[in-house]
Design a protein around this nucleic acid. Structure first.
Lengths: 203, 203
DNA sequence: CGTACTTTTGAATCGCATCAAATCTGGTGG
DNA sequence: CCACCAGATTTGATGCGATTCAAAAGTACG
């Protein structure tokens, strides 16, 4: 493919050079679909820029967002599936690196190190999701936010460079509720805001 | 081990006989720990009876349940970890099948079919968790219940043999809220209850 | 038959969603 | 540089739904 010099990043570091060479970049306009439900997977996808959403439609036609990816692999669970179980649609203009499935699977069979790295990747994803489920089961915005800083932040400090509004979506609450919760925690001295995207947990 | 004739079940069907022979059964009393945070994983665990909870403790000592397993593999994400990231404690007297890690990993390296089966298992787990996250992000008990029947039930029919109370935990709401929600949906004719553990979605 | 648990309903309170509006911010083009 | 615009941030008011505490009725099991 013409798209050489693909910038390295943590989520790609374990991909063997052989696979990176065979990968190709896909550009998506806002609203454009990468794949549709039922399509046969032909590649592993890694979001490099923009935002892709995995969506399904309930029987009454409402759209349900299954996953919001802002970077890294997505729909990894469909590698072995006969068809995707949802649509992948770009929410904003995006760039997706596609690693063809055939060489990917061949590498999985041949390369034990790569297998372990991919397994570790999936394991991290599992832990992450379990954590998120646990957080979303908490009853109040306050508890969810503190749980989030505890588990996603580093040493009690959270970098939310995307703004609080998108954090609210992640927490499953409205942005108003989140703003109010942050303000209250700040008043109580439990949390300090430093700059635009920094939350420090004091406790 | 003396525990021969381990009954087969869907979640064990893909385990090679060789591994099943090397597995051993662990009995746990209520409250007994299978492993503690920091312990080095020595086996893959599959819950055969009872209930095991993966728990962590927040800095203020409160217990946080990361996962409630009522059957099947749990803490699969720790296969490659240097230590568990949580405690595993039986909530009721339980029986756990332990498949030693060394032969498990050896089989993963040697047996491509098994690798695929395990990969599919992890993929299913991922899809399941994403679904659950999506559900827990829904704002009302009503929407969560309908989403649950849609996605976990079969053809609009849900078998909740554990009773509505444990379903409430799964939905992240109190059992009172769930009882009221079911009653209201029934009055509206959206849901029919058939026997103790059957919910049919009419819509 | 008694005990423990689930199921069910009631009442009071609290927190969040919703609708609305004002302010702030970064970025664009004149 | 400044005007302007789109989006994020913030605060307010209101209603609904869930939590909480409480209690009664049903059910399984020894």
């Amino acid at each position: 493919m013409s798209d050489l010099a693909i910038p390295l990043s943590p989520e790609l570091s374990f991909l063997p050079a052989k696979l990176v060479r065979q990968a190709y970049m896909i550009g998506l306009d806002s609203g454009e679909a990468l794949f549709r439900r039922g399509d046969m997977p032909v590649a592993i996808h890694c979001l490099r820029a923009g935002e892709v959403r995995l969506v399904r439609y309930s029987r009454d036609g409402r759209e349900v967002v299954l996953q919001r990816s802002r970077g890294g692999f997505f729909a990894e669970a469909s590698i072995d599936a006969a068809g995707y179980h949802c649509d992948a649609v770009a929410a904003v203009p995006s760039r997706v690196l596609a690693v063809p499935l055939v060489p990917f699977k061949a590498e999985m069979d041949a390369n034990a190190d790569f297998r372990r790295a991919w397994g570790a990747h999936l394991a991290a994803e599992l832990r992450h999701l379990r954590n998120r489920c646990e957080r979303l089961a908490l009853p109040t915005a306050r508890e969810r936010l503190i749980h989030y800083i505890d588990s996603e932040g580093q040493d009690g400090v959270l970098h939310c460079d995307q703004g609080l509004k998108s954090l609210a979506v992640e927490l499953g609450i409205t942005h108003e509720a989140l703003y109010r919760t942050v303000a209250k925690l700040e008043r109580e001295g439990c949390v300090a805001r430093e700059g635009r995207g920094l939350l420090r947990l004091l406790r």
